[in-house]
Amino acid sequence: MVKSKNISRKIGFYALVFFIVLFAIFPFIQMVSMSLKYQWDWGNPSLIPTQINIEAYKELLNIGQAEKNIPDSIKDLLDNTPDLTKDQRKAIIDKYKDSGNVFPFLKYFGNSLVLSLTAAFLSLCLSIFGAYSFSRLKYSGQSTIQRGVLFVYMFGGILLLIPLYKMASNLGLLSSQTGTFIALLVIYLVQTLPVSLYMLGNFFRTIPYSIEEAAMIEGSSRLGTIVRIIIPLSISSIVTVFIYSFMIAWNEYLYASIFLKGYTDIYTLPMGLRSLFVSKNAIWDRIMAASMLTAMPVIALFMTIQKNLVGGLSSGGVKG
């Protein structure tokens, strides 16, 4: 009697685990499945594609796109006339290039990468020194700053959108592409700054003072100890903070949607994906493939820091 109760309990428990995992990963399975399906297969509720189609990925990554639309007769011609020069070949291929319809995924990917890496890097540089200041030095105003960081942490998004937009447009930044890019970069920097300051401050507080004191007795200056002691000791935390900041910038849509309006050349990935979705219908395979490729870098980064993640979360490394 007791045994059978135990067994049914165990089954119930595993069913619960299974349900939780399924709930968490089902949308991802759906995403992978759709990105690999042909259009005629979309209505099929099965998650396994009847036939694998990697055309969407190829198109987004611009692999083999140059020769896709060339008629076979021309291909034969190109193959069988070896005496054509390179320039001539290129001219013929270019003629058949279908440039209007291609979604410039790689360009948006590059824009997002530059923007997020720069913002995360600058934010990290500023916050290492800032966090050191309020977490390890004693001076009047130190606790005010510490509390101020927490306060600022709650702001963001929609509450600051209008004034920041007005400020940028008053400064004339929004009339040029470069200006807009810089404005967005600075905004991403300031959005990641409070999080980085807060997290790094918490990490630095865990480093024993005695190590630093020993270095200073040896004649090291304060700045010297930051560079030689604090940074090497907290390198894993610094990497974690960098990845968090990177992710915040990589995911941002609200500001991008307002600031980048009209500048399609500097669209970030979220902007690009949204415009791809809105512009055309029946492009599920491309949308899903683009989603996969957008998620990949972030998921990969997170999996590398998974060990630090839980600690990072509890020391305030979260946004939204």
């Binding site: 309020f134 130190q142 400020m167 300051l197």
Partner: peptide
């Protein structure tokens, strides 16, 4: 004290200009 303020200043300035000022401007 000087060092403390010096190190926090760049970050504090940016937060002041792009978070606190916008709140008031809003």
């Amino acid at each position: 004290s000087i060092l403390g303020w010096g190190l926090i200043l760049p970050a504090a300035t940016i937060i002041g200009l792009l978070v606190l000022y916008p709140i008031i401007y809003n």
